Simulated scan of single mutants.
Amino acid sequence: MTLSLTELSALRPLGEGPHTVALIAPAGAVLPERIEATCVLLEQMGYIPRLMDNARARHRYLAGTVEQRLADFHAAFHLPDVAAVWCLRGGYGCAQLIDHIDWARLPNVPLIGYSDISVLLSAFHAHDRRTIHAPVATELALLEQANGAEAEARSAAMASIAPALRGDGGHMNATHVAGPAVDLSGPLIGGNLTTLASVAGTSGALHVPEDAIVMLEDVGERLYRLERSLCQLLDSLEPGRLNAVCLGSFTDCDTGDSSVEAMMQEWLAPHDIALYHRLPFGHGAHNQAWPVGSMARLSSDGLEWRAR
């Protein structure tokens, strides 16, 4: 599917206006053609993309050294009239930045991303700054490669970013699997399971407020690795602080004859933590935006978060 200029301008994932959007690569190296395509599409949507100086850098599999990525990170938030800082991709590397972020001089500009960016989203939440768990910027290019239902899902995922940035309330369908089947409320946290488990016990560990609703997703992992990550994550925090776990997509995960839900249920049951699944977020076409830290309610009607 090739999107027309009219269709692109109507999508507008960052909302109305000629917004300046800062593009950073805080983790894995980004293919040059993906960067160029993303900037072109943003311009066609009516935005002003500002690619940070080191976004094309490469250091091993990373988007530059820690110093290069950190310089871009800080500079992005200080651009004049910047509406949001949008990560180009995930991969690996965000945890290397955590101890070097100068929070005192970081304006409260929203950060957008997911996957390895989960580490930054949690750190921003801990410092009372706005973050949106949503598709990375280079996934704009996938819109032109998608067709049919996939194209519709990817367009809807991109379009869901704007209301999240505005601070609107939102809703996701969610199906109860196990644990307490009662209405629950709490702040939304979480992201990529493997990434969050990898920083357990470090300065970048998942920030877990009381009564948290934990959103989890993953990609390309065997079931035993997902179980290892879940156990690591649960052992690193106080399970009593969790109200529920909500599962998004576990894309291309080899689970054999078992299921992610069954494995999760086994480890959550002793803590009386509710488990929900089939939420439309994660790696894949269905990746609806949700605001990290927002107060939300889980019920038979699904997951609903409040306007900010």
Rank of each mutant, 00 (worst) to 15 (best):
residue 138 T to A: 11
residue 268 L to N: 05
residue 123 A to Y: 02
residue 72 D to S: 12
residue 287 N to E: 07
residue 185 S to M: 11
residue 41 L to M: 15
residue 123 A to P: 00
residue 199 V to L: 12
residue 155 S to G: 14
residue 103 W to L: 07
residue 119 V to Y: 04
residue 54 N to H: 15
residue 106 L to P: 06
residue 33 E to I: 07
residue 278 R to P: 07
residue 216 L to V: 05
residue 281 F to Y: 13
residue 280 P to R: 12
residue 125 H to P: 00
residue 39 C to T: 14
residue 177 V to Q: 11
residue 200 A to E: 05
residue 179 G to Y: 13
residue 267 W to R: 13
residue 282 G to M: 10
residue 61 Y to I: 10
residue 159 A to F: 09
residue 18 P to A: 12
residue 249 S to K: 14
residue 87 C to D: 08
residue 68 Q to N: 11
residue 11 L to A: 04
residue 266 E to Y: 08
residue 156 A to S: 06
residue 125 H to C: 03
residue 93 G to I: 00
residue 55 A to W: 05
residue 306 R to G: 02
residue 210 E to R: 13
residue 25 A to M: 05
residue 267 W to S: 07
residue 194 T to M: 15
residue 213 I to K: 14
residue 286 H to T: 07
residue 7 E to N: 15
residue 125 H to M: 01
residue 274 A to S: 15
residue 148 G to V: 13
residue 144 E to Q: 15
residue 97 L to T: 05
residue 246 C to W: 02
residue 96 Q to F: 00
residue 24 I to M: 01
residue 300 S to G: 13
residue 121 L to Q: 00
residue 81 D to Y: 12
residue 242 L to F: 10
residue 208 V to D: 04
residue 62 L to S: 00
residue 167 G to A: 01
residue 46 G to D: 04
residue 47 Y to Q: 11
residue 187 P to G: 06
residue 255 T to F: 14
residue 234 L to P: 14
residue 106 L to Q: 08
residue 13 P to M: 08
residue 197 A to P: 12
residue 212 A to D: 05
residue 183 D to G: 14
residue 90 G to R: 09
residue 292 V to I: 12
residue 225 R to N: 02
residue 174 A to S: 14
residue 240 G to I: 00
residue 208 V to Q: 04
residue 244 A to H: 11
residue 145 Q to Y: 06
residue 184 L to A: 04
residue 223 L to R: 08
residue 240 G to H: 07
residue 180 P to H: 12
residue 77 F to S: 02
residue 121 L to P: 00
residue 175 T to G: 02
residue 108 N to H: 01
residue 100 H to M: 11
residue 109 V to I: 15
residue 203 S to C: 06
residue 277 H to G: 01
residue 239 P to E: 10
residue 136 V to H: 12
residue 46 G to L: 01
residue 12 R to Y: 02
residue 118 S to G: 05
residue 268 L to T: 10
residue 38 T to M: 00
residue 192 N to W: 01
residue 250 F to Q: 13
residue 304 E to P: 04
residue 234 L to V: 13
residue 286 H to M: 13
residue 211 D to I: 03
residue 134 A to R: 05
residue 277 H to Q: 07
residue 10 A to N: 15
residue 14 L to C: 15
residue 177 V to S: 03
residue 184 L to C: 06
residue 230 L to W: 07
residue 42 L to C: 14
residue 239 P to W: 09
residue 266 E to D: 08
residue 162 A to N: 06
residue 34 R to H: 10
residue 286 H to A: 15
residue 284 G to R: 04
residue 284 G to W: 01
residue 55 A to M: 04
residue 89 R to A: 15
residue 135 P to T: 02
residue 273 I to V: 14
residue 170 G to P: 09
residue 6 T to H: 08
residue 100 H to A: 13
residue 148 G to E: 14
residue 296 A to L: 08
residue 237 L to T: 04
residue 266 E to V: 06
